[in-house]
Simulated assay, not measured.
Amino acid sequence: MKITLNRINDDYLFECTNAAGNKILLDNTSEPDAKGVSPMEGVLMAVAGCSGIDIVSILKKQRQIIEDFSAQVEGERVQVDDAKPFKNIIVRFFLTGNIDPKKALKAAELSFEKYCSVSKTLEPNVTVSYEVFVNNEKA
């Protein structure tokens, strides 16, 4: 796996491109005119995306009907010398459709305990937890 990063303005805006040519913008979000996400926001996005792919894949194999899927991710950071790494991350998944809540919860468990490479990369330095809501009810 390989990405390239190119600075595209005179400040902190970077364009990251993967081997397939897909791009994201990274920026210093402490600047008022930031045009991309911060690298730390990118980490949270990566956790949500990785686990989201796992959960959807597992539920599709179980023939669960997902009408809508979203997630909210919050990260708590701590000061370590001059850096502020994540200490805790919580991911909340919101699913609607003809979905067995127990299957949705099990899919999330499998993602975080077995499949999600992003959250596994963060272990053991970051505690990643999750909650699953199916049709507005906590699973």
Results as ranks from 00 to 15, higher is better:
84 K>V: 07
30 S>W: 00
58 I>E: 03
70 S>V: 02
120 K>F: 06
36 G>S: 07
106 K>E: 09
106 K>P: 00
46 A>C: 07
138 K>S: 00
105 L>D: 09
32 P>K: 15
74 E>I: 12
117 S>A: 12
63 R>V: 10
13 L>M: 07
85 P>N: 09
73 V>P: 02
93 F>E: 01
7 R>K: 14
10 D>L: 05
92 R>G: 01
71 A>Q: 07
34 A>H: 13
81 D>I: 04
115 Y>R: 06
125 N>P: 04
135 N>H: 05
138 K>C: 00
9 N>P: 06
122 L>R: 08
11 D>L: 13
85 P>Y: 04
127 T>H: 04
41 E>P: 00
124 P>S: 08
132 V>F: 02
14 F>L: 14
8 I>F: 09
108 A>G: 06
54 D>Y: 10
44 L>I: 12
45 M>K: 08
110 L>W: 03
36 G>N: 05
83 A>M: 13
107 A>K: 05
101 P>A: 12
116 C>W: 04
52 G>L: 06
6 N>V: 14
81 D>C: 00
7 R>L: 13
48 A>Y: 05
119 S>G: 01
80 V>A: 11
99 I>L: 07
51 S>V: 11
90 I>Q: 12
34 A>G: 02
100 D>M: 05
67 E>Q: 13
63 R>Y: 01
62 Q>A: 15
4 T>Y: 03
38 S>W: 06
7 R>V: 02
104 A>R: 04
59 L>I: 12
112 F>Q: 12
49 G>T: 10
103 K>M: 11
62 Q>S: 09
133 F>A: 06
62 Q>D: 08
12 Y>K: 07
49 G>W: 05
24 I>L: 14
37 V>W: 08
126 V>P: 04
61 K>S: 11
67 E>R: 09
3 I>T: 14
65 I>R: 13
45 M>W: 03
66 I>T: 09
27 D>K: 09
28 N>K: 11
122 L>K: 10
61 K>P: 01
25 L>R: 06
99 I>V: 15
91 V>N: 03
87 K>T: 07
7 R>D: 00
135 N>V: 13
40 M>V: 15
55 I>Q: 01
111 S>G: 06
129 S>H: 02
126 V>T: 11
112 F>Y: 10
76 E>W: 03
9 N>E: 07
83 A>S: 10
55 I>M: 15
50 C>Q: 04
69 F>A: 06
91 V>H: 03
108 A>P: 09
38 S>N: 05
87 K>N: 11
91 V>P: 00
112 F>V: 11
9 N>T: 10
51 S>H: 10
113 E>H: 12
32 P>L: 14
119 S>Y: 09
2 K>C: 02
4 T>A: 05
6 N>P: 01
10 D>E: 14
38 S>P: 09
60 K>A: 14
91 V>L: 15
125 N>F: 09
68 D>T: 13
54 D>Q: 11
54 D>V: 10
107 A>E: 05
24 I>W: 01
115 Y>G: 01
113 E>Y: 04
56 V>S: 08
82 D>R: 13
